[in-house]
Amino acid sequence: TTEYTFTDDEEARRAIEELKKRGLTFRYEKHGTTWRVRVD
């Protein structure tokens, strides 16, 4: 499991789109302004 942290909404959304394109399994949660994206 790899975890990424983003504080920029645009950056987080781009990363999420990219992961979807690659067909990877991931989860994300947003805490205030911080996004945590975990890739299995």
Rank of each mutant, 00 (worst) to 15 (best):
T1D: 08
T1G: 10
T1V: 14
T1N: 06
T2N: 07
T2S: 07
T2M: 13
E3Y: 14
E3L: 13
E3R: 04
E3G: 03
Y4C: 14
Y4V: 04
Y4D: 01
Y4R: 02
T5A: 05
T5E: 08
T5G: 02
F6M: 02
F6T: 02
F6I: 03
F6G: 02
F6V: 01
T7K: 06
T7W: 09
D8S: 14
D8W: 03
D8N: 14
D8H: 05
D9R: 09
D9F: 13
D9Y: 13
E10W: 09
E11R: 05
E11W: 05
A12V: 06
A12S: 02
A12D: 00
A12E: 00
A12I: 04
A12R: 02
R13M: 14
R13W: 14
R14H: 09
R14F: 07
R14W: 08
A15N: 04
A15G: 04
A15F: 15
A15Q: 05
A15V: 13
I16N: 03
I16D: 00
I16P: 00
I16W: 02
E17I: 09
E17D: 10
E17L: 11
E18Q: 09
E18W: 14
E18G: 07
E18Y: 12
E18A: 10
E18I: 11
L19V: 03
L19K: 00
L19W: 10
L19M: 07
K20D: 05
K20Q: 11
K20L: 12
K20R: 13
K21Y: 06
K21S: 09
K21G: 06
R22W: 09
R22K: 12
G23E: 03
G23R: 04
G23A: 04
L24G: 03
L24T: 05
L24Y: 13
L24K: 07
L24W: 07
T25A: 10
T25G: 06
T25S: 13
T25M: 10
T25W: 12
T25Q: 11
T25C: 12
F26K: 00
F26A: 04
F26P: 07
F26Q: 00
R27M: 11
R27G: 06
R27E: 12
R27I: 13
R27Q: 14
Y28M: 08
Y28A: 14
Y28G: 02
E29L: 06
E29G: 04
K30G: 01
K30P: 01
H31L: 13
H31A: 07
H31S: 11
G32L: 04
G32P: 01
G32M: 03
G32A: 04
G32H: 03
T33Y: 06
T33L: 10
T33E: 13
T33P: 07
T33Q: 11
T33D: 14
T34V: 14
T34R: 05
T34G: 06
T34N: 06
T34F: 11
W35A: 02
W35V: 06
W35E: 01
W35S: 02
R36W: 15
R36M: 12
R36A: 05
R36Q: 07
R36D: 04
R36Y: 15
V37C: 03
V37F: 09
V37H: 00
R38N: 09
R38M: 15
R38G: 03
R38Q: 15
R38H: 14
V39I: 11
V39R: 00
V39W: 04
